Simulated scan of single mutants.
Amino acid sequence: MANVTSSKELIYWSTSKIKNQILELVKNRNVEPLKTKVEFYKNELALYFTELSRRNPFSKVADQVAIVTGVWVPIWSTIPFQDILPGRIHEQSYQIFHNDGYYANIARYAPGHQSGFWKKIASKLPAYDLMLLQKYSVRDEQWDIKNVGIFQALKNREISLTIDCADEWFTTTIKSKLKKTSPNIDLQPELLLKDMDRNTVKKFEKVYLATSFLEHIYIDNDFRLVKSQREATQRPSYTIAIRRR
Rank of each mutant, 00 (worst) to 15 (best):
residue 132 L to P: 03
residue 133 L to I: 05
residue 45 L to F: 00
residue 80 P to I: 10
residue 83 D to A: 02
residue 12 Y to F: 10
residue 74 P to L: 07
residue 59 S to W: 03
residue 80 P to E: 11
residue 60 K to D: 13
residue 96 I to L: 01
residue 10 L to Q: 03
residue 69 T to Y: 01
residue 93 S to N: 07
residue 85 L to N: 01
residue 106 I to Q: 05
residue 25 L to F: 08
residue 112 G to Y: 11
residue 25 L to T: 00
residue 66 A to C: 04
residue 28 N to G: 00
residue 114 Q to R: 14
residue 117 F to W: 11
residue 12 Y to L: 11
residue 17 K to E: 13
residue 82 Q to K: 13
residue 83 D to W: 00
residue 104 A to C: 10
residue 22 I to V: 12
residue 32 E to G: 00
residue 108 R to W: 00
residue 12 Y to C: 05
residue 9 E to V: 06
residue 96 I to N: 02
residue 49 F to R: 00
residue 77 S to K: 06
residue 43 N to L: 10
residue 41 Y to F: 14
residue 56 N to K: 06
residue 101 G to N: 10
residue 94 Y to R: 11
residue 18 I to Y: 02
residue 29 R to W: 04
residue 93 S to E: 12
residue 27 K to D: 15
residue 21 Q to V: 03
residue 16 S to M: 06
residue 98 H to L: 08
residue 10 L to A: 06
residue 73 V to P: 00
residue 104 A to E: 07
residue 18 I to A: 04
residue 100 D to N: 15
residue 77 S to P: 01
residue 24 E to N: 10
residue 37 K to H: 03
residue 18 I to K: 05
residue 49 F to P: 02
residue 50 T to M: 07
residue 75 I to P: 03
residue 46 A to N: 08
residue 52 L to V: 04
residue 81 F to P: 02
residue 28 N to P: 00
residue 19 K to P: 02
residue 25 L to V: 03
residue 124 K to C: 06
residue 94 Y to T: 12
residue 54 R to Q: 10
residue 32 E to C: 08
residue 66 A to V: 12
residue 41 Y to K: 12
residue 106 I to Y: 03
residue 61 V to T: 14
residue 119 K to P: 01
residue 135 K to M: 02
residue 43 N to D: 12
residue 76 W to D: 03
residue 86 P to V: 14
residue 75 I to A: 05
residue 62 A to K: 15
residue 44 E to W: 04
residue 86 P to A: 09
residue 10 L to S: 04
residue 46 A to M: 12
residue 47 L to G: 04
residue 67 I to P: 01
residue 19 K to T: 06
residue 132 L to M: 13
residue 118 W to Y: 08
residue 60 K to M: 11
